[in-house]
Write a protein that binds this DNA or RNA. Structure first.
Length: 96
DNA sequence: CTCTTGACGCCGG
DNA sequence: TCCGGCGCCAAGA
């Protein structure tokens, strides 16, 4: 896992504004390299220091859905939700 | 080298 | 909506 790729992923996550989210695959597309699973791996291993709860699945399901921790943090951000999933149409961050 | 495992994603049924 | 199936690809065993 190139440390450089890890940095680029974490940089993007750092820029996600409160109330917005981005999907794993979107990050890969935005960077123009890697794929959703690689981004997922980065978050799993090195995501501890950033706003990991703002990185969700393409269908709006938050990470570690079992714990409910992400749900709590997302609500704190006033992220548009549809039940326990993020309303992607309203909350998807384009990168700017 | 092969096989299994995921903080994934898309397409039917 | 909820599943199952399949593609994907880096790590670890």
């Amino acid at each position: 896992m190139p440390a450089e790729f890890v940095q680029r992923v974490l940089d993007v996550v750092d820029r996600i504004p409160p109330g917005k989210v981005i999907a794993y695959g979107d990050i890969a597309e935005f960077l123009g390299e890697g794929g959703p699973r690689q981004v997922g791996r980065v978050m799993a291993v090195w995501g501890g220091g950033v706003n990991w709860h703002r990185v969700v699945r393409a269908d709006g399901t938050p990470p570690l859905p079992e714990t409910g921790e992400a749900l709590r943090l997302l609500r704190g951000d006033r992220t548009p939700m549809r039940g326990n999933r993020v309303d992607m149409r309203a909350a998807r961050w384009d990168g700017n």
